[in-house]
């Protein structure tokens, strides 16, 4: 992999006008190539590499070399400010591992960012030491280019680390949605979802799908959506409730909505939504009684001296 990167480095200047002799791009590229070993050695002692590669310093140095190669390639290609530059692709996975390792230890994004920024001074010092006799213009442009390049590296690390975090959040959000949507069987042919907490559009959709799946699995002719524990609904959620009722009907089941609080009833009226086609009951118990009655199941209260006594 390292060999490929160097090959790439040698090949690119011939193809692109950016890396001409004496240009800052060429100067920085040559410098990174020349000082690869020293830079990797210095980086290995910086916080980022010390904390990620805790076991072996050699491993840290090797990782540093790969990053230097990538930077050299990007410098010569003239895309120092572009996080999508081809050279970064090679090290993206490694950088993401480094960023993720730091994030896992509880560091804030800005702390991780500072860790990466700490890699910049050692390289700049080496560059300045390397070009004592260079024309002032070239020196200034070369240091600027290197600074930009290190800034882009910082961006790439942050981006990969954030992506990792986002993926984790997405996974957990999905798990939470599933946990928060227990469909329970109340009786043969009756299923219910007691909803607690705020309903948003995504959750209403999960609820809708889970309830309708349960209708099929349990062969339930009645599905009860209990929203006693839902503080408010917005228009989108109210529409989802009505769509659930309509979809249940198409499948041959009846969906009863129970526990509509006065505030929610008011909202529904304000929104001008027509719940006329929806069967509603005040409480989950009322909804269950309604379903049992329609299923032809009778409930008999044992009289005194009857079943209740031994």
């Amino acid at each position: 992999m390292v060999g490929n990167a160097i090959e790439e480095l040698n090949r690119v200047p011939e193809q692109e006008a950016v890396g001409q002799q004496g240009s800052p791009a060429r100067e920085v590229g040559d410098f990174l190539h020349r000082r690869r070993e020293q830079i990797a050695q210095r980086w290995a002692d910086e916080t980022l590499f010390r904390t990620v590669f805790t076991v072996s310093r050699d491993e840290a140095v090797e990782a540093g070399r790969v990053v230097v190669d990538a930077l050299a390639q990007v410098a010569v290609s003239g895309r120092a400010a572009d996080p999508e530059a081809g050279g970064f692709l090679v090290v993206r996975e490694q950088l993401s591992r480094m960023g993720a390792a730091r994030t896992r230890t509880g560091l804030t994004p800005s702390q991780v960012s500072n860790d990466v920024d700490a890699l910049r001074p050692p390289v700049l010092d080496l560059l300045l030491a390397d070009l004592p006799d260079a024309p002032a213009d070239l020196l200034r442009e070369s240091t600027t280019l290197l600074t930009v390049l290190m800034g882009t590296l910082r961006l790439v690390v942050m981006e990969t680390a954030l992506n990792e975090g986002q993926a984790l959040i997405d996974r957990q959000r999905l798990q939470l949605l599933e946990v928060a949507t227990p469909v329970i069987k109340l009786w043969d042919g009756i299923v219910a979802v007691p909803l607690i907490g705020t309903l948003d559009s995504a959750r209403s959709q999960v609820v809708m799908e889970a309830l309708l799946e349960a209708v099929v699995d349990q062969q339930a002719r009645f599905a009860i959506l209990d929203i006693t524990g839902v503080p408010t609904v917005d228009s989108l959620v109210a529409q989802h409730l009505m769509k659930t009722v309509a979809a249940a009907r198409l499948m041959g089941a009846e969906c009863v909505v129970s526990g509509i609080r006065p505030a929610i009833a008011q909202t529904i009226v304000h929104l001008g939504l027509d719940l006329g086609t929806v069967v509603t009951r005040a409480t989950l118990a009322d909804a269950l009684a309604h379903a049992l009655r329609k299923l032809g199941v009778g409930i008999v209260t044992p009289s005194a001296g009857g079943v209740g006594e031994r």
Binding site: V216, Q219, A246, R249, L250, M251, G252
Partner: peptide, 23 residues
């Protein structure tokens, strides 16, 4: 009718009011 089909029909605006349905 499958749940996914029912959800899609409702979204499409097809609620087939004249039809009776069963599981």
């Amino acid at each position: 009718m499958r749940p996914a089909v029912a959800i899609t029909m409702v979204e499409l605006g097809l609620t087939l009011p004249g039809l009776r349905t069963a599981l």
